[in-house]
Amino acid sequence: MLIRIVRMTFKPEEVDNFLALFEATKEKIRGFEGCCHLELWKDYNEPNIFTTYSHWENEDALNKYRHSELFKAVWANTKSKFADKPVAFSSKKEMEVG
């Protein structure tokens, strides 16, 4: 399982537009082959910072999504709303304490 985290800082005036875009595309992203989980997080203190948290079957599945027409369209629309460069990384769960 690959966990993908993308932290994005938006221009304050673009937050509602981003949220509308996410609402319109979330089911397509979550339904993409290899996507097992999708969440959108909002920063606790900064209302224009959001993070996507997703689980993918493996790196190949994520790469298929990243090279898809869906991703290209969504990402082009999303990045036009940024106030700062996004931070993205992939991880895997090492352990869970619970």
Rank of each mutant, 00 (worst) to 15 (best):
residue 1 M to S: 09
residue 2 L to Y: 07
residue 3 I to T: 06
residue 3 I to D: 07
residue 4 R to C: 05
residue 4 R to A: 08
residue 5 I to D: 02
residue 7 R to S: 09
residue 7 R to Y: 00
residue 8 M to Y: 02
residue 8 M to T: 03
residue 9 T to R: 04
residue 10 F to H: 01
residue 11 K to H: 11
residue 11 K to R: 13
residue 11 K to N: 12
residue 13 E to G: 09
residue 13 E to C: 07
residue 13 E to A: 11
residue 13 E to W: 11
residue 15 V to N: 07
residue 15 V to L: 04
residue 16 D to G: 05
residue 18 F to C: 02
residue 18 F to W: 01
residue 19 L to G: 00
residue 21 L to H: 06
residue 21 L to M: 03
residue 21 L to E: 00
residue 23 E to T: 13
residue 23 E to L: 03
residue 24 A to C: 00
residue 25 T to H: 08
residue 26 K to N: 12
residue 26 K to M: 03
residue 27 E to L: 05
residue 28 K to D: 07
residue 28 K to N: 10
residue 29 I to T: 09
residue 30 R to I: 04
residue 31 G to N: 00
residue 32 F to N: 01
residue 32 F to A: 04
residue 32 F to K: 03
residue 33 E to K: 10
residue 33 E to L: 05
residue 34 G to Q: 08
residue 34 G to W: 06
residue 34 G to Y: 03
residue 36 C to E: 15
residue 36 C to P: 02
residue 36 C to D: 13
residue 36 C to F: 10
residue 38 L to K: 04
residue 38 L to Y: 00
residue 39 E to H: 10
residue 39 E to N: 10
residue 40 L to C: 07
residue 41 W to V: 09
residue 42 K to H: 09
residue 43 D to R: 06
residue 43 D to H: 14
residue 44 Y to F: 14
residue 44 Y to D: 14
residue 45 N to L: 14
residue 45 N to I: 11
residue 47 P to T: 03
residue 47 P to F: 07
residue 48 N to M: 04
residue 48 N to D: 10
residue 49 I to C: 11
residue 49 I to W: 06
residue 50 F to D: 08
residue 50 F to Y: 12
residue 53 Y to F: 12
residue 53 Y to S: 00
residue 53 Y to W: 06
residue 54 S to L: 01
residue 54 S to V: 00
residue 56 W to R: 00
residue 57 E to M: 07
residue 57 E to H: 10
residue 58 N to K: 05
residue 59 E to K: 15
residue 60 D to C: 09
residue 61 A to F: 00
residue 62 L to P: 04
residue 63 N to T: 09
residue 63 N to Y: 04
residue 63 N to R: 14
residue 65 Y to A: 00
residue 65 Y to P: 01
residue 66 R to M: 14
residue 67 H to N: 15
residue 67 H to A: 15
residue 67 H to L: 15
residue 67 H to P: 11
residue 68 S to V: 01
residue 68 S to Y: 07
residue 69 E to R: 02
residue 71 F to D: 04
residue 71 F to M: 04
residue 71 F to I: 04
residue 72 K to D: 14
residue 73 A to F: 02
residue 73 A to V: 09
residue 76 A to H: 10
residue 77 N to I: 03
residue 77 N to Y: 06
residue 78 T to M: 02
residue 80 S to V: 00
residue 80 S to Y: 09
residue 82 F to T: 02
residue 84 D to Q: 14
residue 84 D to N: 12
residue 85 K to L: 12
residue 86 P to R: 02
residue 86 P to V: 03
residue 86 P to D: 05
residue 87 V to R: 08
residue 87 V to A: 10
residue 88 A to K: 06
residue 89 F to V: 03
residue 90 S to R: 05
residue 90 S to Q: 11
residue 90 S to G: 13
residue 90 S to D: 12
residue 91 S to R: 13
residue 92 K to T: 09
residue 92 K to S: 10
residue 93 K to Y: 05
residue 93 K to T: 12
residue 94 E to V: 15
residue 94 E to C: 12
residue 94 E to D: 15
residue 96 E to A: 12
residue 98 G to Q: 15
